[in-house]
Amino acid sequence: MSNGDRPQSESAAAEVPARGTGEAPPRWFCSPPIDIFDTEEGLVLRADLPGVTDDQLELQIEDNRLTLLGKVAPPVAEEAQMIYQEYRVGDFLRSFILSDDIDHDRITAKLSDGVLEVTLPRAATTKPRRIQIRTE
């Protein structure tokens, strides 16, 4: 799913409402829970994506937006009847706005046991920036 017609929104630290655009049937997306923590080198993001395999995971960076999409295969054959349900089986989708100091080219990711870990290194050249004050 690398189509360019993504919703052009925004938001805090920084999520974009999960939405499937351009896909034929309306799909159900789960927003996976995440942890983000600081390290010496940058940030690490971990997301719970149970049921997702490497080949079914897409990580995409477009401008400053990191989007993760994990597809989940149905756990059972269709004729199986669900008799009790606590969670919905669906694909995982979540987007984040990366801050400018992340070095996009050095972002790496790995997936194991249904947990995605994305390493977001800070660019080496991040220095304190001086903001000029203009006087009229």
Binding site: L49, P50, P75, V76, A80, M82, E86, D113, G114
Partner: peptide, 24 residues
Amino acid sequence: RAYPPVNIYELDDEFLLTAELPGA
């Protein structure tokens, strides 16, 4: 919500309980 979330299916010859346990 209860952790882990669980679904139960009925198939011809068995019941199948699935639980989401990422990282386990």
